[in-house]
Amino acid sequence: MDRAGPEDRLSATAREVAQAATGLVDLWARTAHAGSPRLSVLQLRALTATRHRPGISLTRLAEEVGAQAPAASRLCDRLEAAGLLHRRRSADDRRQVGLVLTRHGQEAIDELHERRSRALRQVLGDMPADRRQCLLEGLRAFTEAADTAPGTPAG
């Protein structure tokens, strides 16, 4: 008979998920560092946010990546110096600056996605098909719950 309460079981499951996710998280991080340019997690988050929202303001980008505006500005300085990002003044209001990916930035993100897809395909190929489907369903449910959880960052 299981004497553990619901909170104990939930805590145990959370620990097991954290341990099980280690392989995926490691693979995800390795692929970001394997190519050129080597991107930090924060740089990748900034480029991804900019890709999804071309013209995003620095303030909004800071919110997206969970950084203060000065840190986000320095991050953009580095990305711009690397040729991955460009600051563009608004034609309507010269005080407004939007961030857009350069062609090199777009290519870097595309290549990263391709490296990740190849790495995932290789690992998934070693799994039985029914387990792959369970993984996919579980990850979709997790993402849906995470996206709607109060107090979690967007995206």
Results as ranks from 00 to 15, higher is better:
R74A: 11
A145D: 06
T59H: 08
L42S: 10
I56L: 09
R115E: 00
G23K: 01
S36E: 11
G138Q: 11
T31F: 00
V123L: 15
T148V: 14
W28M: 12
L112T: 05
A69N: 09
D110I: 04
R78P: 04
R131P: 02
I56F: 01
S73G: 10
T50V: 10
L135S: 10
A49K: 04
A71H: 08
H104M: 11
R78K: 15
R15N: 11
A21K: 07
A29S: 13
Q43T: 03
Q68L: 15
L58W: 02
D110W: 04
D26F: 05
T143S: 15
L112W: 01
S117Q: 14
R74W: 00
T31G: 08
V17N: 05
L84H: 01
P54Q: 03
L101E: 01
G98S: 08
A69G: 09
A108Q: 05
D92P: 00
R53C: 09
A34N: 04
I56K: 00
H33W: 04
D93N: 14
T148Q: 13
V65A: 06
G138A: 15
L75V: 04
G83T: 02
L61H: 02
R118P: 03
E144W: 06
R60I: 01
T48N: 06
V97M: 06
H52Y: 09
G55M: 01
A119T: 07
R115Q: 03
A119W: 01
D130W: 08
A69H: 06
T59F: 03
A12V: 12
L24I: 14
L135K: 05
G138E: 11
V17G: 07
S40H: 06
H33R: 12
R132I: 12
T59S: 12
D147H: 06
S90I: 03
F142C: 12
R95T: 11
L136P: 02
M127F: 09
Q68H: 14
D110H: 03
V25F: 07
S57D: 05
R116G: 07
L44N: 07
P70M: 05
A129T: 14
L58T: 08
F142I: 09
A32L: 06
Q122D: 15
D77V: 12
E111A: 14
H86Q: 15
S40T: 15
R89G: 08
A145Q: 10
T22E: 13
V97D: 04
A62S: 07
H52S: 14
R60M: 07
S40Y: 02
A12C: 10
R94A: 15
R94F: 07
E111K: 08
V65P: 03
A71S: 13
T31V: 11
Q43Y: 01
L58E: 08
A69S: 11
E144Q: 13
A82M: 05
I109E: 08
